[in-house]
C-alpha cells in the first residue's frame, strides 16, 4: 500500500492530511497515523513562510534531503498552540520548529521541548539551538511631508513632528521595550522591564496606531501599500518591501534584536531525523547560506567564515550595525510574560 500511495499525492498517508480533514477517503485517513509513524524518510518542519521559507528551502531543506535522504515537508503557520497540542494529544503535525527568544522560554517551562545536545559550543539555550538573529526595526514611508527623518522610537511616538498613521506588532514582549526606549530609558537599563511605565507610554500612541499587525507578510503589505506611515517591523519584511520598490526607509538605531532557535517537539516519533536536522541547520555552511539569503545574523560564529562581506550590511549582527541595536533579555523580563500579554489584550480592547 505504501508504494502505491506514495505515487498518489491524493492518498499519501500523512497524519497532516488526517488532521486537516482533507483526506478524500476516510478509511485511508484513519489508518494513516500508524503508517506515518513507521516512515522516517520525511521530516515535518513548522514554517514561518515568506522570505524565511525561501531561504530555508534552498539552503537547509534541499541540501539536508540530498545528504540524508530525508525529505522535508513544511507545515504552517508557526503555532505555539499546535506545539503544545501535539504534546498533549500525541498526534504530531510537525517534528521541528523554530521559536523566538520570548516563546522558547515559555515553551521550555511548559515542557514542550525535547532535550538536545549542543551542536556547537555555547549555542544551547532552553533546549533550543541558536539559529539566527532578527530585528524589529523602525521603518517609514518616504512619501510623507515630514521635514526630518525619524531616528529613534521617541520619534515614532512624536506625532507632532511626524504626523501620520502607525503600526506595531500585536506582541507585548517586543513592544514594551520600544515604549520604554521612547520614554527615555537607556538600552542597558531596560531589563527588568518597568511594565507600568511602558503601558503609560503606550497610552500616548494608542490612538495613532491604526493596525496592530499579527503576521510578517501583513506588516510588509501595509508598509508597501502606504496603509501606515511608520511601523515597527521585522527587518526581513522591511527589506522585502524595499526590494519591491516601495518608497520606504529604515534605521538600525535602537533596533531590537531577538534570537531564533531550532527546537525539537517533545516526544516526537521522528526524533532521530529531527535531531539530525537541527544539527544540520545550525552547522556553519548551511546556516551561512540561510542567513545570507534571508539577511539574518548567524548565531553559530563558525558560519561567519562562509558569509560574504557584501551580504553583511543587511544583517542586524553586522559589526557596524550591532552597536546601534539592543537585545531582548527574556530571562530577565521583570514580570510574568503571560500576565503582561493578558494585560496587553485588555488594554487593546479598552
Amino acid at each position: 500500500m505504501t508504494a502505491f500511495t506514495k505515487r498518489n499525492g491524493l492518498l499519501r498517508p500523512t497524519r497532516r492530511r488526517f488532521l486537516q480533514g482533507t483526506a478524500a477517503a476516510g478509511a485511508a485517513a484513519l489508518s494513516a497515523p500508524s503508517i506515518a509513524r513507521a516512515q522516517s524518510d520525511v521530516l515535518y518542519v513548522n514554517s514561518w513562510g515568506g522570505p524565511w521559507l525561501e531561504a530555508a528551502t534552498a539552503n537547509l531543506f534541499e541540501p539536508f534531503a540530498e545528504q540524508t535522504g530525508i525529505r522535508v515537508e513544511t507545515v504552517s503557520p508557526v503555532s505555539f498552540a499546535k506545539l503544545a497540542a501535539q504534546v498533549r494529544t500525541g498526534v504530531y503535525e510537525f517534528d521541528v520548529t523554530s521559536l523566538g527568544g520570548g516563546d522558547i522560554v515559555r515553551a521550555n517551562q511548559a515542557g514542550l521541548l525535547e532535550e538536545i545536545e549542543p551542536t556547537y559550543p555555547d549555542g544551547l539555550f532552553e533546549n533550543g539551538m541558536g539559529s539566527h538573529a532578527f530585528a524589529t526595526v523602525l521603518a517609514w514611508r518616504t512619501d510623507t511631508d515630514w521635514q526630518e527623518t525619524p531616528q529613534s522610537w521617541a520619534d515614532f511616538w512624536d506625532v507632532d513632528r511626524f504626523p501620520g498613521t502607525r503600526s506595531l506588532q500585536r506582541y507585548p514582549a517586543r513592544i514594551i521595550p520600544l515604549a520604554l526606549l521612547a520614554d527615555g530609558v537607556a538600552p542597558q537599563d531596560l531589563y527588568p522591564l518597568d511594565i507600568d511605565r511602558a503601558f503609560a507610554k503606550l497610552d500616548e500612541i494608542k490612538a495613532h496606531i491604526t493596525v496592530w499587525w499579527t503576521a510578517g507578510a501583513q506588516s510588509a503589505q501595509i508598509l508597501r501599500d502606504g496603509e501606515v506611515d511608520m511601523i515597527g517591523i521585522w527587518h526581513g519584511n522591511y527589506f522585502a518591501a524595499e526590494d519591491e520598490g516601495a518608497p520606504v526607509a529604515m534605521t538600525w538605531n535602537q533596533a531590537e534584536i531577538e534570537r531564533a532557535y531550532w527546537v525539537v517537539a517533545k516526544d516526537t516519533p521522528n526524533m532521530e531525523a529531527a535531531k539530525a536536522f537541527v544539527e544540520f541547520a545550525t552547522s556553519a555552511e548551511p546556516l551561512a547560506g540561510f542567513v545570507t539569503q534571508a539577511n539574518y545574523g548567524a548565531l553559530n560564529p563558525a558560519a561567519n567564515a562562509f558569509i560574504a562581506d557584501a551580504a553583511k550590511p543587511r544583517m542586524p549582527t553586522a559589526p557596524d550595525t550591532y552597536p546601534q541595536t539592543f537585545e531582548q533579555d527574556m530571562l530577565n523580563f521583570g514580570a510574568d510574560p503571560e500576565e503582561v500579554s493578558m494585560r496587553f489584550e485588555e488594554w487593546l480592547a479598552s
Binding site: S79, F80, A81, W212, A349, S350
Partner: peptide
Amino acid sequence: PREQMAAGLIGRQIEE
C-alpha cells in the same frame, strides 16, 4: 482591535 469578536478572543486564548 477595540471591537473584537468572541471567536478572535477564544482563538487568542488558545494560540497565545
